[in-house]
Design a protein around this nucleic acid. Structure first.
Lengths: 100, 100
DNA sequence: TGAATGGTTAGCCATGCAGCTAACTAACAT
DNA sequence: ATGTTAGTTAGCTGCATGGCTAACCATTCA
């Protein structure tokens, strides 16, 4: 299964910084500065993560005055759930065996 | 959340070759050669993926004669499901709002 | 015993990724 | 008008990753 969106999703979530951003945004939108605060990292490095996530369709952003507000793209994680569920089913079908 | 096992899982699944291996193994064990067949890639390159997955605890392997048999590590994907579920819940709690 | 099969090891190379600093722009505050 | 805040752009660096070939076991088959 050469699924480009899964490639992107998994790659994006492989970085703990980016997962932390998602975990934060699940509770509501936030500006870049606020998101960056807990991460001991220069702003440009951090911004790179934001860009990756926006490019991957996982978050969306908007400029508001001099801040950039970020929020979750609500359905972004659905392909992941789908793939996992699919795997789970294939696995169960196999462990139960074709005769059951 | 600096979760090492999630790091490894996501990173491992980010590669389409490795996802294909999982998809194949969900239907039952297989030897390296058989797993490698659909992937236009030199054996050593392919073996590298097998090693990564074994190191990450996603699959297990055993030597049997001159072949190496691989199979799924049944609970490997559970942390993923857990994280996704957690995210989904945080998201829903937020969209519904604290007052509902 | 000799050839073929399946895997393994070693070593190389190109690319991408995550981080950095320095320098700049755009909005607000005084 | 000047300073401060929040991003942004550009350009560099080091390391990890994914691929390759060549050469080498170890097992099985004839």
């Amino acid at each position: 299964m050469a699924n480009h969106s899964l490639d992107t999703l998994f790659a994006t979530l492989g970085d703990p910084t980016r997962r932390a951003i998602i975990e934060r945004l699940a509770h509501g939108p936030a500006a870049v500065k606020e998101l960056a605060a807990p991460h001991d990292m220069a702003l440009p490095s951090f911004l790179q993560h934001i860009k990756v996530m926006e490019a991957g369709g996982i978050i969306a952003t908007r400029k508001e005055g001099r801040q950039r507000i970020c929020w979750m793209e609500p359905n972004a994680l659905i392909p992941l759930q789908g793939w996992l569920e699919w795997q789970r089913q294939a696995w169960e079908a196999q462990t139960l065996g074709p005769k059951n």
